[in-house]
């Protein structure tokens, strides 16, 4: 695991790890949340990334950043063949949203690497994100929005998440489900080894047997 700062909950989550080094569902969610709490020293006042030929690299950085934030392997976020293509859908979607000014600089924290990230690389990205989050609340809530987007398929406006936290949960943030695919392919379902309400491609009779293993659902998550 990385040297990414851990809360007590995160430490508990590490204790949940099996001998194979895989984390349980709860710990994955806790780990993802932990990633959001961290902070960074990168400047975040530069103009947004332009739509250029470097988009492929920017997309790769986005996937790797997302892997660090969510704990989902970058290869699972970007399968070899990807008919659903949520990565591109989310990438474009975020760039069109308000309050996402730090996004371009956030991408610079993750390498544009196609291959699987090593543990050291994941730790490096998380460390940089943690430092950035400390410096800038906009980064903090944007990373939280991105994580929630991957897990829930819905977009929470960063400032609404901030208001939610500052009001100690009284200000409930609204959200926008990005698309039908975003809903059915939210990672929350996979981490929970379950399926969304109203949609399943699982085997007939799955409800009476134990779920497939986490690897089948895109894991191991870390």
């Amino acid at each position: 695991m990385s040297d990414f700062p851990k809360t007590d909950e995160a430490a508990d989550a590490s204790a949940d790890q099996g001998e194979a080094g895989r984390l349980g569902r709860r710990s994955v969610l806790v780990q993802a949340t932990t990633a959001l709490i961290a902070a960074s020293s990168v400047s975040f006042d530069k103009p947004a990334l332009a739509d250029t030929a470097s988009d492929d690299n920017a997309l790769l950085s986005f996937i790797n950043l997302s892997a660090a934030l969510t704990g989902v392997p970058n290869g699972s976020l970007r399968p070899n063949v990807d008919p659903i293509d949520l990565k591109r859908e989310y990438f474009k979607f975020i760039r069109l949203q308000k309050e996402t000014e730090p996004f371009a600089d956030l991408l610079k924290l993750a390498p544009a690497k196609r291959e699987a990230l090593t543990d050291a690389e994941l730790a490096d990205i998380r460390g940089k994100v943690a430092a950035a989050v400390k410096m800038n609340d906009k980064v903090k809530y944007l990373t939280r929005s991105i994580t929630l987007l991957w897990y829930l398929g819905g977009w929470y406006v960063p400032s609404a998440l901030q208001a939610h936290e500052q009001s100690k949960g009284k200000a409930r943030p609204g959200f926008q489900v990005v698309s039908a695919n975003a809903y059915t392919h939210g990672w929350i379902w996979r981490v929970a080894q379950a399926h969304p309400m109203g949609y399943s491609d699982m085997q007939f009779g799955y409800w009476k047997t134990t779920p497939a293993d986490l690897k089948s659902f895109g894991g191991p998550f870390q």
């Binding site: 063949v81 008919p83 659903i84 399926h195 491609d201 699982m202 085997q203 497939a212 089948s216």
Partner: peptide
């Protein structure tokens, strides 16, 4: 299908969808 080798998606992610 119906074997013990379960998958979240028994269709193995069709292309095109």
């Amino acid at each position: 299908q119906n074997s013990k080798a379960k998958q979240p998606d028994m269709t193995c992610e069709p292309v095109p969808t």
